[in-house]
């Protein structure tokens, strides 16, 4: 630790980054948000005789499987980017961040297409209500993630991100992985754990 660092650090807790801690707390709260939705889902599913209802039928799994692959890949790419910036390879990080954002946009476009192919609307009962609102709010979180990553990108372009100041990248990565994990939960309850 250099003399400058010692001067900067007037705090009691020295090694914890505030943006990272803030994001961990925020994501923990977000987990409550989705947990409440999933609890509602299981409550309604346990009361239903047929799930998904006959009017909906068995959901088509191929596009959601691709969506899952896209999102999981993007998480890995972002984590590699984080490792790059932490080791001082900022140019590599910039390329990997751009790739993550592109994968996020692909996810959004493909999910929009998937919505357009569905045969049931949002007003068709409790299953469509749950399906559209849960996946829709998750989609909103992906949009938020793309915005967040692009904000980090803007900070990178203006020289605010470096090996020493890469906490925002780490915070954004925590959020992105969280959104990824929520999708895995949605993918499981809506596409995998259904009678086929």
């Amino acid at each position: 630790m250099s003399a400058t660092d010692l001067q900067v650090d007037e705090r009691a807790v020295r090694r914890t980054s505030s943006p990272v801690m803030g994001m961990v707390l925020f994501v923990a709260g977000e987990a409550m948000f989705f947990a409440a939705f999933f609890a509602g889902y299981f409550q309604f599913r346990s009361q239903a005789k047929v799930w998904p209802p006959a009017s909906v039928g068995t959901p088509e799994i191929s596009i959601p499987a691709v969506l899952t692959a896209i999102l999981v890949t993007s998480s890995i790419v972002l984590q590699l980017g984080l490792r790059a910036v932490a080791r001082g390879r900022v140019a590599t990080f910039e390329r990997l961040l751009l790739l993550t954002i592109l994968l996020g946009v692909c996810f959004l476009a493909l999910q929009a297409y998937d919505y357009s192919q569905l045969t049931f609307g949002i007003k068709g009962g409790i299953y469509p209500s749950l399906f559209y609102v849960m996946t829709g709010l998750h989609m909103a979180h992906v949009v938020g993630g793309v915005v967040l990553l692009s904000v980090v990108g803007a900070q990178t372009l203006t020289g605010q991100i470096s090996q020493r100041h890469h906490e925002p990248v780490e915070a954004a990565a925590i959020y992105w992985h969280f959104v990824d994990i929520v999708w895995l939960g949605l993918f499981t309850v809506y596409y995998v754990a259904v009678p086929r």
């Binding site: 709260g29 948000f33 409790i126 209500s129």
Partner: peptide, 24 residues
């Protein structure tokens, strides 16, 4: 941080019931 997200879910569901025709 842990309780507000829960009412947020309720408020979204209420909002969607009113505005977009869901049936929560």
């Amino acid at each position: 941080a842990f309780s507000l997200p829960i009412i947020t879910v309720g408020l979204f569901e209420s909002l969607f019931d009113r505005r977009f025709g869901t049936h929560f």
